[in-house]
Amino acid sequence: MKKEHDIFGNTGLQFFGKISASLSHELKNALAVINENAGLLTDLVHMSEKGHPLDPARIKGVGSKVMEKVKHADSILKNMNAFAHSVDIPAAKTDIPETLALLLALTRRITSNRGIRVYLDKPASPLCVHTSAYGLLHLCWDCIESFMDWVGEEKEIGLIPEKTEQGSRIRFCKLDQMPSDPEILREQKELLGALHAEIVAETDKKEVILMLPLRLS
């Protein structure tokens, strides 16, 4: 029970709220674009009724835009659904690169609003640990959120998941402005503990490494 509280406690809810709010904003935008294009089609029909010729290519173009936006909205909803189900099981076999890919999709709007590109170096094969998918998403987001202050001129953060003898690790790279004595996730000690994770700053390499055990036990 204590372990679940650590992962899904107050800050866990804040994370859920932040991601949900961002995704709802993205969906609103997609709906707004669909709404404008549907309105434009109606406008074009009204104009044709007044004698302006209706251009089939124009109609086709507007239709394609609507279909693209519906596709985009559908992918947002799929990610939202995967995120919502990440709380279903306290701990299970979790593919780290897949989880990170989901996190980047969920948070792309937030990071790009800061002008920052976060990319994932996806390994060729799956890299699984037994952990809380939601806890991992939350912890990795807290890392990205705090490391956004440390990006260099390229304004990029690279995520590199790798296998280790004890489990796995995620390298957060290109943190060119990282201070020489950084304080990392000071307020997330409980979450780190709940995931049995450790975090280490490699200041000379401008990287932070998050180490995860093979399984929570």
């Binding site: 935008n29 707004a32 674009v33 404008e36 309105g39 104009m47 835009k65």
Partner: peptide
Amino acid sequence: DEQELVSTLAERLEM
């Protein structure tokens, strides 16, 4: 910042 939204809205206002 949503280009498709703003450009379409502008077009509808121009109409």
